[in-house]
Design a protein around this nucleic acid. Structure first.
Lengths: 310, 310
DNA sequence: ATGAGGTCATAAGCTGACTTTATGACCGGC
DNA sequence: GCCGGTCATAAAGTCAGCTTATGACCTCAT
């Protein structure tokens, strides 16, 4: 339905070393020695030696210059290591998010966040928080703005994050970041080659791939284009940000998404941004808390990590 | 030396499911059924069932609502799936890069690129290229601008990518993107809270963490600050972008880096951008090729994926 | 030069995770 | 009521990776 059945898709996991191996490689790069790296990741030196060797066999490239004085990365090894770091970083974000999810019930800091923020920003913040306060257990509840507000009011959560134009009733808050909505298309789409910005009327008149009604993204877009004739009938209405990206990438048509959700797709040119003139597609990202008192303790720590409110 | 010995670092790989499991989870999300997902990733249905089950045990969270009509993601499952997607995306970039590296000798499209581009942009482009032209074998050589130019002139490479102010002698080229240098500090640094932009003089007078002399990043910075008194004595001179980031994150001081290298660190607030006034810290990213004739064949395909030069 | 301390590689045996095949239980539609 | 789909369970085989034990090599200091 979304045209998302993808490529032939050969088994990726067989061509990429597992996380343990990638971590080991990073450790070798850090320490300059297989043995020290092995100790760092908690295995023995022969295990590390063997593991790196199979990685080299798998990739078909020499990664290390072994010498009796230690091991240094080859030129290819340096590149591979950097790609490995990105995988490990993503895995760390995964872990941080999962940890929060796991400790849902018995934790000390309970965060409620909108889906977009929970997906794209929170895991990174949680990694940072864990470095500063390793003993803080964080739980995470995801939902729309109304759900976040309700959970704060009822005391089910200590701190919330929402996108949107205003602060929900009964809460205090502060703007922590801005988020732009951008129009993107697949590289093959005619709009990808445009030099002149899209006009609001043009955008409004074009059928787009959108999140379903009620999503924060769509509300902002609706409001911004109301004066230009309102949105055209959508091309597709999908239920998740990722589904929208997938449809757009496979060439179904243009879509409008938060730039937060588009980092990798844009730099990898899987999607291309289309300039737009004369419409303000910014929205605020806010931290919110129960009215009256500023957050304290772990909630304040997390807040300060997001850039505001130390 | 760089303060990069990091956290206690418990074994990450034991807390994050392996790539195969994550891929399986994505397949389940796509197909709505364990059995179909199993076929998709090339294993049997019981294996898939068991694997998802251990993932749920490992994470301590139910991921799937199983029913006789299929399996759908739980709310937690949806979040986990999105984090998983980022890991798998990173793994795909890893694979694409590695593939190119592996086919170095016998491939048809030979690309030479500067380190920064090879690290942060090329793997994504290669993924896109493989989708359009699955049979194109790509090889990748990384080096500095001079090395890229030499390889193009001698016919060792078909297409090159360089950062920098001008096109190397004997080559033609086109600007494919711009890249800004940004000043970043750890969240705890005083500059992280600045409201007023940094003045050029201030920046020039402050000891910074820098790449070693000769790096493209440093050249641009040198040139831009020459009129404001030139760079102060560096705080640290490190040999890789990642080392610079690591030092800055651990609070050693401010550093200046390409925004390409900072995507995740900025959104995760592990590093914070400091506004700067009155200095132009942009540089061009160029595709280059041997003088005279525009690239053809796979080289042109890749070029068009980067946004210019269809 | 000779021994100490560092490096990495190899060999052998063990463990455990993941797989497949073969079932069974459950639900919904015809 | 039976068929086609779903997922779960059980038993048995395979294989990758681990550990322990050892050896070879280089460098430095004595």
């Amino acid at each position: 339905m979304t045209g998302n059945d993808d490529v032939p898709r050969t088994p990726l996991a067989h061509r990429v070393p597992d996380l343990g191996a990638l971590e080991l490689l990073l450790a070798v790069a850090r320490h300059g020695s297989l043995g020290r790296a092995a100790r760092d990741v908690g295995i023995t030196q022969p295990a590390a030696s063997s593991r790196v060797r199979s990685m080299e066999r798998q990739l078909g490239v020499a990664l290390l210059d072994r010498s009796p004085r230690g091991s240094r990365l080859t030129e290819a090894g340096a590149l591979v290591t950097d790609w490995a770091r990105r995988v490990v970083d993503a895995a760390e974000a995964f872990d941080a998010g999962a940890q929060a999810l796991r400790d849902r019930r018995d934790s000390r800091l309970r965060v409620a966040a909108s889906m977009t923020i929970a997906e794209y920003l929170l895991p990174g913040w949680l990694i940072a928080l864990r470095e500063e306060r390793p003993d803080t257990a964080v739980s995470l509840l995801a939902g729309n703005s109304a759900a976040v507000a309700r959970r704060l009011v009822t005391g089910e959560a200590d701190l919330g994050f929402v996108e949107g134009l205003s602060i929900p009733e009964g809460l205090d808050g502060t703007v922590i970041a801005h988020d732009r909505l951008v129009v993107v298309v697949a590289p093959g789409h005619p709009w990808a080659r445009r030099r002149t910005p899209l006009l609001p009327g043009e955008l409004a008149a074009t059928p787009l791939i959108l999140r379903e009604h009620g999503s924060g993204t769509r509300q902002v877009l609706d409001a911004a284009l109301a004066v230009h004739g309102g949105l055209a009938q959508p091309l597709l209405e999908l239920s998740s940000t990722t589904a929208v990206k997938g449809a757009a990438e496979s060439g179904a048509g243009p879509c409008v998404l938060s730039e937060l959700a588009l980092g990798e797709e844009l730099s990898a040119r899987r999607l291309v941004q289309v300039p737009v003139a004369g419409v303000r597609l910014r929205r605020q990202l806010r931290a919110v808390w129960p009215g009256g008192h500023r957050p304290t303790g772990p909630a304040r720590d997390l807040l300060s990590l997001t850039g505001r409110g130390g």
